[in-house]
Each structure stands twice: as structure tokens, then as C-alpha cells.
């Protein structure tokens, strides 16, 4: 049946948690693209059949005309589904650049595995565009995501961050599970990468 596969592809966008990516379904995507090509072949053959019969495609309303129309509309519907699938995923990828990090290696592995090759490329290019904007306005827009309440926050280190990092000129030992009182702007970077968590209350 026309368009059934494309519908399944779109459903993949909505299954799973909101805002969470599912693995890129290249197989299904290619099947839908193949259906598009088949639609196109039928469309073309119907048009040439009408031309051979000496009928004007613009004005004749016979079975072949409607057959061709159905194939055209089905192709467009499939195209819109394909585009919606890729475009909506691309929007989620843009979101990753804001919430997780601008570098591919900053993305957790389980997210990376869900991206197609082209999507990874897109992520890199889009991040580069963002970075170039930030360097032009000379402001890091990736920090300060929530309105500040207090200049200092309490954080717990979740992972072995290492001793090498320096926060506001002070080198502390950021061993796992240790707790610190840091400047919010300094800590945010590590919180967004999942290396620290903010302690509230």
C-alpha cells in the first residue's frame, strides 16, 4: 500500500521519550526512497502511455490520468515524510549542540551510535557555525542556560574529572564523589557534560 512505510518512519520519531533520539533507520528510509522511485516509474510510464495515445495530459481525465496523479501525490507524501524524519532529527541534533556540547566527542557514546554518518557531519558543521558566531560576538553562549540565582553553587563530582582542571585560578582535587562550592559559571560546563551534579536544598 502506498505510503505505509513512510508512516512507520514518522512514527519512529514519536515513539520513545520526547526529545530522545532513536537509532537512525537507514533501512526503512531507503525503502521509502525506493517506493518513491517506483512511484515515479509508474508515473512516467502512464504519462508516456497517454502521449502515445495522443491524449493531452493537461485536459484528459481518464483512468491513466488519475493513476498518474495518485502516484505523484503518493510520491510527494513520501517525500514529505522522509524530509520530516530527517529534519526533525536535525532539530534534535541542533538541540544537542546547545545542551550537551559542540564537539562530537562530547556527546555520550549511546547518542553517537544513534546518528547516521551524514547526521554526524551535520552536527559538526552546525556546531562550527555556532562557534563562529560566538567568536564573532566574543561571547560563550553555551553557558548560563538558566537564570542565575546565586553566584556560587554546591556540586558533587560524578566522575573522575582529574586533577588537571583549574577552576577560577584555584586547582582543587576533583576526585569522584567529592563536593565543592564553586562559581556557577565555572561549574556549568562540567554539569552539562554530566561530570558534576548540582546539589540543591
Amino acid at each position: 500500500m502506498h505510503g505505509r512505510l513512510a508512516c512507520r518512519l514518522i512514527k519512529e520519531l514519536t515513539t520513545g521519550e520526547k526529545g530522545q533520539l532513536n537509532p537512525f533507520n537507514a533501512k526503512l528510509l531507503n525503502e521509502v526512497a525506493k517506493e518513491c522511485s517506483e512511484n515515479f516509474l509508474v508515473l512516467q510510464s502512464l504519462i508516456s502511455k497517454m502521449q502515445e495515445e495522443g491524449l493531452d495530459f493537461q485536459t484528459t481525465r481518464n483512468a491513466d490520468h488519475y493513476g498518474a496523479l495518485i502516484n505523484h501525490l503518493s510520491l510527494i507524501r513520501n517525500k514529505r515524510c522522509l524530509m520530516a524524519y530527517v529534519y526533525n532529527r536535525a532539530e534534535m541534533i541542533q538541540n544537542l549542540a546547545w545542551t550537551v556540547g559542540l564537539r562530537l566527542f562530547e556527546l555520550p557514546e549511546d547518542i553517537q551510535e544513534k546518528l547516521s554518518h551524514s547526521e554526524k557531519e551535520y552536527f559538526k558543521r552546525h556546531s562550527a557555525a555556532l562557534e563562529s558566531y560566538m567568536s564573532k560576538v566574543d561571547l560563550d553562549l553555551n553557558v548560563d542556560m538558566v537564570p542565575p540565582k546565586d553566584p556560587y553553587i554546591k556540586v558533587r563530582v560524578l566522575d573522575d574529572v582529574g586533577e588537571g582542571i583549574v577552576v577560577s585560578d584555584k586547582a582543587a582535587n576533583f576526585a569522584r564523589h567529592s563536593m565543592h562550592f564553586l562559581k556557577r559559571t565555572d561549574a556549568e560546563l562540567y554539569i552539562s557534560r554530566g561530570l558534576m551534579e548540582e546539589l540543591t536544598g
Partner: peptide, 29 residues
């Protein structure tokens, strides 16, 4: 800078959509 950004955004998005979907579709689409 925003104007530069929008142009880059479009180029990147068009390339991505082109590579993933559009190149697999018939010419007129």
C-alpha cells in the same frame, strides 16, 4: 553575524537533507 549564521545554517541543512534524502529521489522532486 546572525546573517552569516543563517546562511551557513541553510547550507549545512541543505547538504544534510540532500545527502540523506533528496539525492535518492527522482529529478523533479
Amino acid at each position: 553575524p546572525e546573517r552569516v549564521f543563517v546562511n551557513r545554517c541553510i547550507d549545512d541543512m541543505e547538504k544534510h537533507l540532500g545527502d540523506t534524502v533528496l539525492s535518492k529521489l527522482p529529478d523533479n522532486y
